[in-house]
């Protein structure tokens, strides 16, 4: 047993637990925006940790894995931002517990003018 494979597999386990909790958040949260919060944050860190752990296990793959990590860290927030913008444009409401919605106020002001 080599130490780098043990360390890598433990990091991978941590990342997979974050991925599982993110998916649980996507399943349990009450509305689209909260779901997206859970989904984006947990999948970004979870994928980064999982891939990094595998890169430590097989250190000859580290370069490829780092390129994948950079790609995911750059594109994941952008795709979630595009989805959130589209959903708000379409008029999908926030959950009933919400306290404020400044963007909607702004849009209705623009309609009146």
């Amino acid at each position: 047993m080599s130490w780098n494979s043990l360390l890598g597999s433990i990091i991978t386990l941590l990342g997979s637990i974050f991925l599982f909790l993110g998916a649980l958040g996507v399943y349990r949260m009450p509305d689209l925006y909260n779901r997206m919060q859970a989904g984006t944050k947990s999948t970004t860190l979870g994928t980064m940790l999982t891939l990094l752990g595998i890169g430590i296990c097989h250190y000859e793959w580290l370069g490829q894995v780092l390129i994948l990590i950079i790609f995911i860290a750059l594109t994941n927030p952008i795709s979630s931002h595009a989805l959130a913008r589209a959903a708000h444009f379409k008029g999908i409401p926030l959950t009933a517990k919400s306290v404020t919605d400044k963007l909607k106020e702004e849009e209705s002001k623009a309609e009146v003018l």
Partner: peptide, 10 residues
């Protein structure tokens, strides 16, 4: 679907 694909990459 977004969550699903990112988890699938892992």
């Amino acid at each position: 679907l977004d969550t699903f694909t990112v988890i699938s990459i892992s």
